[in-house]
Design a protein around this nucleic acid. Structure first.
Lengths: 236, 236
DNA sequence: GGAGGTTCTGGAACAGCGTTCCATCGACTC
DNA sequence: GAGTCGATGGAACGCTGTTCCAGAACCTCC
């Protein structure tokens, strides 16, 4: 048969053989591969995740990895899904909806803060499982928030788009930020560049440039969430 | 000297030599390169833009391009800036702020709709000129909207993050969408996949799945803008 | 109008990537 | 033991962004 991997095929194979007895204790598996990928991503950044580096860390060859994972996109999606799933299970139910949305949002933010590559991945493939999890998490609160049925789809989409947008922004910042320099110095550089723009063409940018270095990303992110939630309940 | 390109160095050189007289009518220039890049991106998509393809179209070598452009990132940023600049100059001033924000937003949406690669690029590098233009465009309306001084930075950031998030989402959709299939069929596929999720774990996703194929991206995007603007004016 | 320097060109070469291919291994069934 | 088949690992392929450099095109000054 020699079929190359796809989850569906794998499932069928496992089903016919009653149950997979693990062949060796050090056997490769999608879980072990994803785990190793996350370790590389966290330790050395997005650009360090190559199939060669991954193979070296797992003491195997690139071909073996492709038996378990279809391609790099699937690997990254699985890694991001893994991180987001941990965030979403950490969110307990039963809270007041406004608070629940804040908890989910800040959980996602903190996850991206800790693993910037997740931000890149989320904005690269919007229909991956990780996004659906977030969509469900915030969408499930809207009924309790009093958002009319007809507006719930648009509202949840707006929240998710906002989260995605910030995810991309933050991840991009982390990508070009040297690992040792701190963020406020980096933002000061951006602010300086803003100051050098033509004040006639960019009056607003000039006005807020001073606020850029001293602002708190996390607070600004949550302020945006509050803004959108306020809009949802106001436009009753 | 043989200095390799950077805008700053170029400027200095030009200044010392009073004025560059164009050497040949078919001379290479950053403008011509960006123009050719946009043509390739529009006609064949993001993956078709390679330095080899670009060199072939310009009937030159890859090395010549690098004299005018530092790297591929700068090329993409310049291309996106070009498109967004056309959008922003098309927006006349003097309108009611709420309407002006809608005009800017839908202008950006339409640009990404026509050039999906712009969406990818905007979310990849959030501090590029194109983003600053959008930031200025929406931020400049907030004073007239009555948003308090202290909240303007957060509000403008929220709007831009939202626009970026949707840009990424839409561009990713266009990326994996075969050029001939239509969008509604594609969305129907996604909706089907949503339907197959566990209804106990994903009740909200199930509920809105039916709305997915028939929804209008542009309208949903503008609904999100209205939501955020409503939030800004409500939280007075 | 040539000399000499600078700007710019084009193509070869390099290192590294994702992916494919395939000989081979290990475990299980007959 | 022979045969089957999931699984392995490493070589090889085609492509990428980028660098390098010999030399053409051009400008300036004598």
């Amino acid at each position: 048969m020699m079929e190359r991997c796809s989850n569906h095929v794998k499932m069928v194979l496992m089903a016919t053989h009653t149950r997979r007895t693990e062949r060796r204790t050090d056997a490769l598996s999608k879980e072990r591969i994803v785990e190793a990928a996350i370790e590389i991503l966290d330790a050395e950044g997005e650009s360090a995740l190559t199939f060669r580096a991954l193979a070296a860390r797992l003491a195997t060859g690139a071909g073996a990895i492709y038996w378990h994972v279809a391609n790099k996109g699937e690997l990254l999606a699985a890694a991001a899904d893994d991180v987001i799933a941990r965030v979403m299970t950490g969110v307990a139910g039963g809270a007041e909806p406004r608070a629940a949305i804040r908890v989910i949002s800040s959980g996602v933010f903190d996850a991206i803060d800790a693993h910037p590559w997740v931000g890149t991945q989320l904005s690269r493939e919007p229909w991956q499982p990780a996004i659906v999890q977030i969509f469900e998490g915030v969408g499930g609160q809207l009924q309790a928030l009093g958002v009319p049925e007809r507006a719930q789809f648009d509202s949840a989409s707006a929240l998710v788009s906002y989260i995605l947008g910030l995810a991309a922004q933050y991840a991009a910042g982390a990508r070009l930020l040297a690992p040792d320099t701190d963020r406020s110095a980096f933002l000061a550089t951006i602010a300086e560049r803003w100051m050098q723009l033509d004040p006639a063409k960019y009056p607003f940018v000039h006005r807020v440039a001073t606020q850029l270095p001293e602002h708190d990303d996390r607070e600004q992110f949550l302020a945006g969430i509050d803004l959108i939630v306020a809009g949802m309940t106001a436009a009753r």
